[in-house]
Amino acid sequence: MEEYSGVWVFIEVDEEKNIEGVSLELLGAGRALADKLNVPLAGVLLGDNIRGLANQVIYSGADTVYVVDHPVLNLYRTEAFMKAVILLAEKYKPEIFLYGATPNGKDLASAIATDLSTGLTADTTMLDIDLEKRLLEASRPAFGGNIMATILCKKHRPQMATVRPKVMKALQPDDSRLGKIIEEELELREEDMRTKVLEIVKDVTKKANLADAHVIVAGGKGLGDQQGFQLIHELAETIGASVGGTRDVIEAGWLPHELQIGQTGETVTPKIYFAIGISGAIQHVVGMKNSEIIIAINKNPEAAIFDVATYGIVGDAHEIVPKLIQQFKGISKGDLSYV
């Protein structure tokens, strides 16, 4: 096992050749782990004509970038990507290997874990190192998010984990950083591929909006009923925000399911998050707690949402929200006198 060394991050690239946010976040998290272990951090970059991205990987924290550039790797396919990664992993033997918990990241990591016969921890939200044993401590929500479990992989290498997007912090890119770029050749033939991506359809529904939104107004069961929930739409419209809700709200049918925020819904990181009539159950909070400013409005002063709120207002949403709307409307007209 000693021959395994170094922390690796799988760099996911979208079809427009942009590095996914989660990969940059993982470089940030991977950097911290590598420093603790005093080993290099490497990125694994696969695709067609993506060499040019290698420097960006270094600027974001990597010491080394392993590149396989091949036309068959143009769009993600398990079979092709797997072959490339296994080639690298068997040759260079990393001790830790992280992937984004995205559809592709999870798919790839599962296949690789099977072929390398090693452990894989899914959907990690906390990463740490037990320095004494040089073990990766990958923690993740268990039993429906009620509790966290730390998963260890003691006897097999690499130790692998998929990590949830938006829970780790990316580093500020630094274009003075230097690193090594190692390119590997791999023989791949399109005829051997058993799957083909025929088309990619971008979804420009609200859902994509929610993940990218700068301001989100989210409502919970505290709004009372669908009628009461109109207040959320009204406030959102006033300030040009996106609307989201808790699972209870979605289950009650007040919002479509793609607007659910939380463990089983979307993870969001807006600049401003309004949590109105939301109790702050952990399953909801994991999906929004990394928002920059969280404003909670709840009539119960003991509500857990206040524990994560930047600003809290204890009060009835039906009274507070209309006043907020009024005030914001004031600002929009340029009348800032009372602000």
């Binding site: 016969s117 090693t118 452990g119 894989l120 921890t121 401590e137 923690s139 929500p141 268990a142 509790i147 966290m148 479990a149 730390t150 998963i151 260890l152 992989c153 003691k154 006897k155 097999h156 952990i282 994991v286 707690k289 524990d307 994560v308």
Partner: peptide, 13 residues
């Protein structure tokens, strides 16, 4: 290969 180490309630912010 994987084992569950410890279980804990998420730290309260």
């Amino acid at each position: 290969p994987t084992v569950v180490g410890k279980m804990f309630t998420p730290p309260k912010p």
